[in-house]
Design a binder for these strands. Structure first.
Lengths: 212, 212
DNA sequence: ACCAATGGTGACCACCTGGTCACTTCTAAC
DNA sequence: GTTAGAAGTGACCAGGTGGTCACCATTGGT
């Protein structure tokens, strides 16, 4: 930890939270480059120098903020792996629901993540995306291998292809959930998170053939 | 058409193409706000005033450029609807392949589209995304209704949910194809466009149960 | 040869950006 | 009450932005 970050850690928890919340909102609204340090300090009612004392640079602020968030990203997965119940598809559905809950709890973090996905110039992009992907892939691979062993998934299923497929479907499911406008004009009649998670799980289970 | 845009239309086709190509690259590399008019004219070797004579504003340039591209977006769909062969899933696979071909032919346009998806402040976003989505949804709905009528899709299949599902899977398939880093760490062993399209089609057909 | 129209130019403008730093204020130990 | 060290400040800076406009160059019609 740098000397400056220590200064920030010394602050009262209340102030720390306010600073991080306001900065997170700014990055979520505008992405990295278009986010303005001036606007952040103005909304916080503090001097610009203070923020630079805490984090050194704009990038340092972002690193601190998103780095802490990535840890949160991983928590729901661990919970399902360790305490999930039912067969393979039950756990898949639980994962859909847990991811949706995460987006509900940290919408601005997820908005930053989505902007980072396709913006090649986002600072620290490779590091953060790599970390998230690695955790996701590990979790899914474990789930699928377990499904083949215990839950009747075909033994000749190509694991890597299955991981890729499930990951894609989950990714897109969450995108649509976090940015509803993404699915306007292709609106499903299933409106709740539960219904959409069920529909996606059924797709993975039986394809389009069986809509039950 | 504005007076200024007419000036641009009067130019030689060669110069018009160079200008549009260079501007498209800049927007694809940096997104809208971070794209620099100064860099564009510098690379083109023309004066900044010229570009503003052609398009009035930065937004005018972007509108001209992306508006023309949206028309291209729609062409592959029409071709499949009018000349596609085989049953429902054959046409779905053809759609995967045609979309991939479009991304290959116009990579920078697709990169702009991806940036626009999650950047709420992208100018003209609602208009352009709405137009694209509407065309996609109409095409898919027609395909699915046809599949229920003629190709043995279950008659109780909820059409809107199916449209939403197919659309999601296609979206994410293309994302991964256009931004390979998106699937690093969850790499499928199917490496060609054909193989990935086949895998995705099989998912839609029979779910994870049957990997053939 | 002249003119009008069109395309082309680049110095210049106001504005905003991330970042700096000499300075003041606060706090707690003695 | 004094003092050391930490927290907080905001005017200032260099550099980049989109956009302007008075001026120049080229061309084709008469």
């Amino acid at each position: 930890m740098t000397q400056s970050a220590k200064t920030f850690e010394n602050l009262s928890g209340e102030k720390r939270e306010r600073v991080l919340a306001e900065a997170t909102r700014e990055f979520a609204d505008h992405g990295y480059h278009q986010a303005s340090v001036n606007r952040i300090v103005q909304r916080l009612g503090i001097a610009k120098g203070s923020l630079f004392k805490y984090f050194g640079t704009k990038e340092g602020l972002f690193e601190y903020l998103f780095g802490h968030a990535v840890a949160e990203f991983k928590k729901p997965l661990k919970v399902i792996r360790d305490t999930g119940t039912g067969d393979f598809f039950d756990r898949i559905e639980q994962t859909f629901l847990a991811s949706g809950a995460f987006v509900d709890a940290h919408p601005n973090i997820y908005r930053i993540y989505l902007k980072m996905l396709f913006n090649e110039r986002f600072p620290l992009r490779d590091r953060f995306l790599g970390e998230i992907r690695k955790a996701n892939a590990k979790f899914l691979r474990q789930l699928i291998e377990n499904g083949i062993e215990s839950d009747g998934l075909p033994s000749d299923l190509d694991v890597e292809t299955a991981v890729y497929t499930v990951h894609s479907v989950m990714d897109r499911f969450l995108q649509g959930y976090a940015v509803p406008s993404l699915d306007q004009g292709v609106e499903s009649t299933e409106h709740t998170l539960q219904d959409k998670a069920r529909a996606m799980t059924n797709l993975l289970r039986r394809g389009l053939a069986d809509p039950s």
